[in-house]
Every structure is written in C-alpha cells, then in structure tokens.
Simulated assay, not measured.
Amino acid sequence: MDHNNILGVVLAGGKSQRFGEDKCQVKLGDRLLIDYILSEITDEFEEILLVANNSINFKKSKNITLINDFKKNLGPLGGVLTAMKWVKENNKNYQWISTFPADTPFFKTHILKKFLQAINFDENKLFFIKSNNTRHNIFGLWSIDLLDKLEEDLDKGERKVEIWANSIGVKSIDMHFENKDPFFNINTKEELAKAEEILKND
C-alpha cells in the first residue's frame, strides 16, 4: 500500500466540556498536549490536516495545515467529513484519511505502522484499532468513498462514531499491550494530573 494515498488527520475540534478549557492547548510536561500526537505522526504522512474550531497553537511543520470544521457541533464525524471535503475541494489524490485524537499523549509511531501494515485495503472501507478488548473509534482509517454516505447521515442527525461505524460495517485491527496504555486520553484535569505522573515515571 502506498501511504502517499493516506492523509493524516488530527481531530481537535472538541468542546472539552469536562476539562473546562481547550485541552489540546494545555501543557503536559514541557509541551502542548496536541504536540505529543503530532510528533508521532508528522513524519509518517505527506500531509497532516489539523481540524479545529478555533485558531490553536501547535509546533509548526511545513506539512501541517490547520483548518476549521466546516460546521460546528457535529462531533468527531463532522471533523472526518471536513477532512474528506478538504481532499475533494483541493483536488488531492488521497484515497484514505487516517484519524487521530488530540488528547492521547502516549500513542507511538510504531503502533500506527503496525495498524497500517495489518490492513487489507481491499477488504473494507473503514478500520479501527482495537486493543485489550476496547475499540478506539478515533484511531481509524476511512475511505474517501464514505464521504457522501457520511454527509447524508450527519444531515439526518447522526453524531455518534460508534453507531455510524457499526452501521457502515467497520473492521477492527486487534492489538495487545501489557504495560502503559498508549490510548490513555485526557478528558479531565484529574486525567491530566495522572498523565503527568505517568510522564515522570516513564
């Protein structure tokens, strides 16, 4: 599989309601939270699209483009559709988008590589990572062919990634991790404090 056919997409348009402020902009250790995921994926894709609702700070790179959600309050599915529309509107040749959340500081490049290597791209239109019996619905690979169906269902009011993916027919790629959970995500100040402890003991 030619990975030049894949656009990397970081979904950073969430409301961060439980956190109380834009969590991707808080500091964890000496870096912004969003820079952790960017540092792991920036060299893996020709281009990275950062989908947000506001102008945000991040470590700049020549292959990262920041855009706004085309419509607010549609959740992660809206961010996915925004990325797909960007591909079409800019006449890009990407056939797939690989999505990542902005709040998972312990995800590593080798997991992404293992995920992509395990995929038979002719087998399905949507793939998610599953680890230790938990499916991670934002760590996904989405065919651009899903654009019209996704837009139609969003217009009908669908907002939940889990439900939509199941209705489409998603294939899970199973992985297992013994120690630190690379999918630990930060939704609250307490979880940020826990991440600080993990970082100190790493």
Score class of each variant (00 low, 15 high):
His3Asp: 07
Gly8Glu: 04
Gly8Tyr: 09
Leu11Tyr: 07
Lys15Pro: 07
Gln17Phe: 10
Arg18Lys: 15
Cys24Val: 03
Val26Trp: 01
Lys27Glu: 11
Gly29Val: 14
Arg31Met: 13
Leu32Gln: 00
Leu32Lys: 13
Leu33Gln: 04
Ile34Ser: 04
Asp35Phe: 11
Tyr36Lys: 09
Ser39Asn: 13
Glu44Phe: 09
Glu47Val: 01
Leu49Arg: 05
Val51Glu: 04
Ser55Trp: 07
Ile56Glu: 00
Asn57Arg: 12
Lys59Ala: 06
Lys60Thr: 11
Ile64Val: 15
Ile67Phe: 08
Asp69Gln: 14
Lys71Arg: 14
Asn73Glu: 14
Leu74Phe: 15
Gly75Gln: 00
Val80Gly: 03
Val80Asp: 02
Thr82Val: 12
Trp86Phe: 15
Lys88Cys: 06
Asn91Glu: 11
Asn91Val: 03
Lys92His: 07
Asn93Phe: 10
Trp96Ile: 08
Ile97Glu: 02
Thr99Phe: 04
Phe100Trp: 15
Phe107Gln: 07
His110Ala: 07
Ile111Cys: 04
Ile119Cys: 07
Asp122Thr: 12
Phe128Asp: 02
Asn132Gln: 07
Asn133Gly: 00
Asn133Pro: 00
Thr134Cys: 05
Phe139Cys: 04
Leu141Ser: 02
Trp142His: 13
Ser143Asp: 12
Leu146Cys: 06
Lys149Glu: 14
Asp155Val: 08
Gly157Ile: 06
Gly157Tyr: 03
Lys160Val: 05
Val161Met: 14
Glu162Arg: 12
Glu162Gln: 13
Glu162Phe: 10
Ile168Ala: 05
Ser172Val: 05
Ser172His: 08
Ile173Trp: 05
Asn179Leu: 12
Asp181Lys: 06
Pro182Arg: 09
Pro182Ile: 04
Glu191Thr: 08
Lys194Tyr: 11
Glu196Trp: 04
Glu196His: 08
Glu197Phe: 01
Ile198Lys: 08
Asn201Pro: 02
Asp202Ile: 12
